[in-house]
C-alpha cells in the first residue's frame, strides 16, 4: 500500500484540527458538576450513636467511625485495592471482593490491598461528629 507523500501543510492542518477537535470533545464530555454529583459528601452523626470501644458503620456513605474510649477515627470504607466497600468484622474490616483484611485502625492485615484505609476528616462539636471527604 504505497501512500502519496503528505505535504507539510496538510499534515500540520490535520494535526491542529484533530487537537482542537479532541479538546472540544474532551470539554463536552467532562461536565463540571460531574465530579461532585456522587452524593457522598459529608455525614453528621451524634457522638452517642458510636458505641464505646466499637464502631458505627455507615455503608451507604462508605464511612466507619471507630471509637476507642474518647478517641474517634473516621475511615473511608473504599478498599484501597480495587474500590469495593469493605465490611465490618470482629477483627476489623474485610473486603468481599478480593479478601483484603484491615485492622480496626484501617491498617492492612492481609493483602492484596496496598495501603491502609483512607482516614477522613472528622470534626467534633457539641456532641455531633461531622465526617467530610475533603
Amino acid at each position: 500500500m504505497a501512500e502519496a507523500p503528505r505535504s507539510r501543510r496538510s499534515t500540520l492542518r490535520a494535526l491542529i484540527l484533530s487537537l482542537l477537535g479532541g479538546a472540544a470533545l474532551w470539554r463536552y464530555l467532562t461536565p463540571r458538576a460531574g465530579a461532585g454529583a456522587s452524593g457522598r459528601g459529608a455525614v453528621s452523626v451524634p457522638e452517642r450513636d458510636v458505641p464505646a470501644e466499637g464502631a458505627l458503620v455507615l455503608p451507604q456513605h462508605r464511612v466507619a467511625i471507630v471509637r476507642g474510649g474518647d478517641d474517634f477515627l473516621a475511615l473511608d470504607l473504599t478498599c484501597t485495592h480495587l474500590g469495593c466497600t469493605v465490611k465490618a468484622t470482629e477483627q476489623g474490616f474485610a473486603c468481599p471482593c478480593h479478601g483484603s483484611r484491615f485492622g480496626t485502625g484501617g491498617d492492612v492485615r492481609k493483602g492484596p490491598a496496598p495501603r491502609p484505609l483512607r482516614r477522613l476528616r472528622l470534626d467534633r462539636r457539641d456532641g455531633i461528629i461531622r465526617v467530610s471527604r475533603a
Binding site: W26, L29, T30, P31, G34, A35, A37, S38
Partner: peptide, 13 residues
C-alpha cells in the same frame, strides 16, 4: 475514568 464514569460507577451519566 473521568470520560467513562463522570459521576462514578452507578451514576446516571
Amino acid at each position: 475514568r473521568a470520560l467513562l464514569v463522570p459521576d462514578d460507577v452507578g451514576g446516571p451519566l
